[in-house]
Design a protein around this nucleic acid. Sequence first.
DNA 1: ATAGGGTTAG
Length: 566
Amino acid sequence: MKKRYYNKILSSLEICKTFKELKQIHGVMIITSAIRYIIPLSKLIDFCTNSEPQNLDYAESVFVRIDRPSVYIWNSMIKGHSNTKNPAGALVMYKKMQRLGYSPDHFTFPFVLKACAAIVDVRVGKCVHNRVLKTGFESDLYANTSLIHMYVCCADLESGEKLFDESPKWNVVGWATMIAGYVNNDRASDAIRVFKEMEFQGVEPNEITIVNVLVACAHCRDLETGKWVHDCIGQLGFCSRRLNSSSNVILDTAILEMYAKCGSLKVARAYFNEMPERNIVAWNSMIGAYNQYGQASEAFRLFEEMRLSGLEPDEATMLSLLSACAKLGALSLGQGLHAYVEKTNIAEHVSVQTSVMDMYAKTGDRQSAFQIFSGLHRKDVKAWTSMIMGLAMHGHGKEALNMFSQMQRDESVSPDHITYLGVLSACSHAGLVDEGYKHFNSMSDVYGLVPMEEHYGCMVDILSRAGKLMEAECLVKTMPINPSVAVWGSLLNGCEIHDNVDLAEQIENHITKLKPQGSGIYVLLANIYAKAGRWQGVKRVRDLMRHNGFRRTYGWSSIEPKLLSS
DNA sequence: ATAGGGTTAG
């Protein structure tokens, strides 16, 4: 073919913008035989796989007609597949390539490993790892970073760590991969530790590293490190919206989320208000924080504001709002949200269905809760726990325990710490001491769950309500965790029910050392003394209360607020 | 031509 045509085609491919144009060029390529030349062919395929949206079928139709595709073209096809919803296609390509005798190069590995990571297939990932070693790419930086990414995505942190430790020098991407790996595998404190190591080694973090470590701080509720990282951002000179006109909404959201999760709601809100750009994630973060820190109505207020700004809620918004309804006991508000998610495609998420179910269970509509529960495609531990908890909360202890035994028969789930809080509270409501003990013991014996303070609190509650105050007292004194005000409070509650003033007096000594926040416990103490006619005790407690700055709060009840207008 | 990034229920 003429050199002139060839060059014209190459430059056309270069400036090609739309798929329609590409098809025309493709036609010309066939007529002029340019289709037989590797460079225009590569560019043709690259356009199909890199354009937005990509057209893999078209690339495939060109690809299958190539006699001997170059490794470059194989790589393009693998890359194309790795970026689709079905990354497994990349592995099919990779296998085919090798079966036909082509040897992968250092560009092949990152693409194919990305696919392994995406479909969480560590078995194939390990095979690729072997290939990396056999083909002599074991010191390739990109291949190794991709390998670590693959391992951490498959939750095989040990293999990731091993690779990471083998090399003494990593660039910022390698460090970020390891840090993100820890964050995504619930090991936020390791992420923070590695970040500090990175700082120590003099590798300068960038936005991505900072975002990751802020998420880690949020998970750990490590406000101190979080603030330090926030301060670092200013010194690093990149991206801070205070110093720079260009904003980074992801970074801003990570900062907001760090303050929010650490409970600094005021700081978080102030930051939120100042953000030059707020996407749905930022709103969700703030709404979720209000919900999490007991300001459910504020969550709804902010939601209204979000609607006014023209943003549509997504499933994360709904999860927070449904949880807020559950906490407020706002059934009809929850019903409104239920109707909304059904109208949109949000209800397709199992997590949302479970959350709707949780809302019904907590607000006491157990028919609706049961109905959704039985229709759930996947009943995970959270679904079971919601039902158990909801039933227990509304006094249906026996039913809750019945749910729990059904759950134990389902082999696809096993209870966790929170399930047991529901189970034990069910026993408490139903007054089942022996059954309570049985479940408390099965926690560690059967499921290897170490009881937390709350579980001891539940047991103390069960025993003291049943009048077994000595046993309860003994448990408080022998539990392996230092009992908090709440645990002593459970025991004290038993003292009130069963008129045991002497024990109450002993408890008073323990409690005052803990400087309780809130007046509830003092009021309880005073009531016990008053009932027994111990007026000097009553006076002592009231003085103590005043001394600690608490006033008696009055009884309150709540009615469902009318908030959702739409 | 290649590697790393934010929210989400009990």
